[in-house]
């Protein structure tokens, strides 16, 4: 893709992440990942909807948890991937790190949105309100805003290579800030209301809840990995095509 990417380093990791080589080995991942994800979803949904009892406290609404918790986990996992990629962009200046960051941002926003909406739909029957300014929901909403900011910043740049480095700085600034935000929101929350809510991931969760929860979480995580790989491959292809298009325009200008 870029000149950096074309030079093959002796380091095995950079070789693995060299765009051309990445396209080759990642092709073998797509169908296995899709298959695993589909099987996990089938099993997970069967457990979640048909083969698990209603909770003695929350009744049938406990089933919302099986789609809410995986998305909430992915909203954070995705930021973790972006932060690691941002370090890759800034420290090793690796082009695949750029691609990984760019591919992850919209996925993170989508999973965060799903976590928020399913959380609100869970909150209404459980707490009697769609939105509770509870520590977790508030920090998840702020995380969503951070994702939107990152996507907006990606889109304002025309030069995507320069954008990658700038977005990487913002991603890391955000990563440093997220614990501070989490802490301040928790402090603010204890100030305004004592939190007496049921904690979904408390140690008391029985096995009948753990099985569908774990299966669904794995299913969504594998799906995320699949989509991430696919989006990265698309971005590599797109950059290749963009370069050819530039060359074509240059040729045409020369000819005329």
């Amino acid at each position: 893709m870029t000149d950096q990417g074309e030079t093959i380093s002796t380091n095995w990791f950079s070789q693995l992440a060299h765009p051309g080589f990445f396209m080759r080995w990642s092709a073998y991942l797509i169908w296995p990942l899709a298959l695993i994800s589909a099987v996990l979803f089938a099993v997970g949904l069967w457990f979640a909807l048909f083969h698990s009892p209603a909770d003695y406290q929350m009744g049938e609404t406990v089933r919302i948890m099986y789609v809410h918790v995986p998305n909430a986990w992915l909203s954070q996992f995705c930021y973790g991937i972006m932060a690691v990629s941002a370090v890759g962009t800034l420290v090793w200046r690796h082009p695949m790190a750029d691609v990984s960051m760019k591919a992850a941002a919209p996925l993170g926003a989508a999973f965060t949105a799903m976590a928020l909406v399913s959380g609100a739909l869970w909150g209404r029957p459980t707490w009697g309100t769609f939105w509770e300014w509870d520590g977790r929901m508030t920090s998840t909403l702020i995380l969503f805003l951070i994702y939107l900011g990152l996507i907006a910043l990606w889109r304002t740049f025309e030069d995507q290579l320069r954008a990658a480095k700038v977005v990487a700085v913002l991603t890391l600034v955000g990563a440093v800030n997220i614990p501070i935000i989490k802490f301040s929101v928790d402090w603010w929350n204890t100030l305004h209301q004592p939190s007496t809510f049921f904690r979904a991931d408390g140690p008391k969760a029985p096995a009948s809840i753990i099985t569908p929860l774990l299966t669904m979480t794995l299913a969504f995580t594998v799906l995320f990995l699949l989509l991430h790989v696919l989006r990265m491959r698309t971005e590599v292809t797109k950059r290749k095509a963009d370069r050819l298009e530039h060359l074509k325009i240059a040729r045409q200008q020369k000819a005329s």
Binding site: A54, G59, E60, T61, R63, I64, V67, H68, V117, S118, L121, W122, R124, P125
Partner: peptide, 11 residues
Amino acid sequence: GPHATYIIAAY
């Protein structure tokens, strides 16, 4: 149960 709407909406 009584909250079927919310469960279906979330899914």
